[in-house]
């Protein structure tokens, strides 16, 4: 420490060069701080998956170890038991202000959607209800551009009009880290701090920061979950990766897409986009 102090006194300590994860982290912190400043009331969507755990972690980075707004879990009641256990454990450990939302039964959802998309749309309806009840102006969600072509079109601050609709043809300009915050009654803004992250960045960051995850991501009997949704519409992939480092190694050679195990993405060409326009994540 003395040596450090001497160097410091001489102005010799230089900032550590930022690597790619440092840059992604700094940008996400900036976005979270913008949201906290500009959009009140604000909440963070915690799906219990790897991306939203990274997002909670980044919020703690942004606000010196705490999450100064509620986190929402919109429960389809069809998640894996491991996920519910994880939620209960880390709500306490991370001192989160947890809000639970519940989804309507599938019979109440648009019957013209293909079966898996219809099931996924329950979550959209549950989320919409919660946002309306709590009058949230900002909702932080952990989507990434590389997950899915429709998500690649997203803005960091993405306005949702009345009825929570996403007007993909008429999105605001967004540049130089300036985010538009239009407001009318019934409108909210989805904030996407992970938009620029890729799947492998998420895993490398989990490794670097030692962020806890649900075990389902790690291989048992030759299979693991690469993406976690409802039990009935998510399937595991073949994998031997049973640690974070092994998952990273696997991803570095993999060329299949992450959401391959998510049924609603593949039912028809436009099913996923229809879900998103209506407010799905």
């Amino acid at each position: 420490m003395t040596e450090l102090a001497d160097k410091h006194a001489a102005g010799l300590i230089e900032p550590r060069p930022m690597d790619d994860l440092d840059q992604l982290e700094a940008q996400s912190i900036f976005i979270l701080r913008e949201a906290y400043r500009k959009l009140r009331p604000l909440a963070l969507l915690w799906s219990l998956g790897k991306d939203s755990n990274v997002m909670v972690w980044l919020a703690r980075k942004a606000f010196m170890g705490r999450v100064p707004f509620p986190v929402m879990h919109v429960d389809t009641e069809k998640k894996f038991p491991e996920m519910y256990a994880f939620r209960d454990e880390y709500t306490k450990k991370w001192n989160l202000d947890l809000i639970l939302g519940y989804c309507p039964p599938v019979e109440e959802i648009d019957p013209s959607l293909p079966p898996a998309a219809r099931s996924a749309a329950r979550k959209t309806a549950g989320l919409a209800k919660l946002i309306d009840e709590r009058q949230f102006r900002g909702v932080i969600a952990g989507i990434r551009r590389d997950e899915q072509a429709t998500r690649a079109k997203e803005r960091v601050f993405s306005p949702r009009g009345a009825g929570h609709r996403w007007d993909v043809r008429n999105q605001p300009p967004e540049f130089w880290d300036q985010y538009a915050t239009p407001y009318e009654d019934g409108m909210h803004i989805r904030v996407h701090p992970l938009l620029a992250w890729r799947e492998i960045d998420i895993w490398r960051y989990i490794e670097r920061e030692n962020i806890p995850l649900v075990d389902l991501y790690f291989a048992k009997d030759g299979r693991r979950y690469r993406s976690l949704g409802d039990r009935d519409i998510t399937s595991p992939v073949e994998s031997e990766a049973s640690t974070v480092a092994e998952v990273i190694a696997e991803l570095e050679t993999s060329r299949t897409s992450e959401r391959a195990g998510r049924a609603m993405d593949h039912e028809s060409e436009d099913a996923f986009e229809r879900l998103r326009v209506a407010g799905y994540l």
Partner: peptide, 17 residues
């Protein structure tokens, strides 16, 4: 210079939040 869950360093450079 304050950060959370990062090595303590009395310095920060361009690009850091």
């Amino acid at each position: 210079v304050c950060r959370w869950h990062a090595p303590e360093r009395p310095v920060a450079g361009a690009g850091e939040s």
